[in-house]
């Protein structure tokens, strides 16, 4: 069974006394060690530093790290929707066409924007043109509620949208109806309570759900715990195989 972690971050561990979350080579090595120890084959890899400071160096860090671990890392870039339109379009095209990234990760509350700002129309337009998905942090008031993300998906049916946290501990019930209704809306099961993960699976089915941990730069238990939680779903083996890896591979066009 192939295991793909659909929500990981690359960067120094700020809880381990690092001032900067910048992704050094050592951070990439640690990421690889943690993922391999957990039995994860591939990760959708996101920046940390690029979400809290300048996105472009964060994207470049990801490209460097992927060159170091090409089989493991599937990088997703980021942009700032408050940039001028031309700069958003240029950086998104650079990420996909030059750096070979697989999608975009945006974090509305960390990056400080609403999903309704004009720049997000540009992001949606480029995602559709480049045929890549976009994943959002969700589950947090006031810029990142589950419904704000779901309504971005509803407003942009041509864009594949991922709920990056399945609404976290409290807003997960809001992900269920959109996942059943919207063809372009997917859920990474990285944050709902265990009972919520089960209910999402029971109501949505296996095809739009993905394992994710938010791991890679935090304590290794971040990955192993979410993996154990996903494996603890009451679901047949073929459904778990989809959720643990096949759906993520299919989403980025790597399914065999």
């Amino acid at each position: 069974m192939i295991i793909v972690d659909a929500h990981t971050h690359l960067g120094n561990d700020i809880y381990a006394g690092q001032w900067s979350a910048a992704a050094t080579d050592a951070a990439a090595d640690e990421y690889a060690r943690v993922m391999r120890a957990a039995g994860v084959d591939k990760g959708f890899t996101f920046t940390i530093a690029g979400l809290v400071s300048d996105p472009q160096p964060g994207n470049d860090e990801l490209a460097r790290a992927r060159a170091r671990y090409p089989d493991l890392m599937l990088p997703w870039g980021t942009v700032d929707p408050y940039w001028p339109e031309a700069k958003i379009r240029h950086e998104m095209r650079r990420c996909v066409q030059e750096l070979g990234f697989y999608g975009f990760k945006l974090h509305p509350w960390l990056q400080g924007f609403s999903l309704t700002v004009p720049g997000m129309e540009v992001v949606a337009d480029e995602c559709a043109a480049l045929n890549v998905p976009v994943l959002f942090h969700d589950g947090t008031a006031f810029y990142s509620t589950a419904l704000q993300v779901a309504y971005f998906a509803r407003a942009h049916p041509q864009v594949t949208v991922l709920s990056g946290h399945g609404g976290l501990a409290e807003l997960w019930p809001d992900t269920i109806a959109p996942a059943k209704e919207l063809a372009n809306y997917y859920i990474v099961l990285n944050g709902p309570v265990q009972q919520g993960m089960q209910q999402i699976y029971d109501e949505v089915g296996p095809d739009k759900l993905m394992f994710g941990s938010d791991g890679g730069s935090f304590h290794p238990a971040t990955v192993t715990w979410y993996l154990a939680r996903t494996q603890a779903l009451r679901a047949p083996a073929e459904d778990l195989e989809k959720i643990l890896g096949l759906n993520a591979l299919r989403l980025v066009g790597l399914a065999v």
């Binding site: 809880y15 381990a16 501990a169 309570v193 938010d214 935090f218 304590h219 971040t222 715990w225």
Partner: peptide, 9 residues
């Protein structure tokens, strides 16, 4: 409900 990253903190 809480997560390893937060327990670390």
């Amino acid at each position: 409900r809480n997560t390893p990253g937060n327990f670390q903190q």
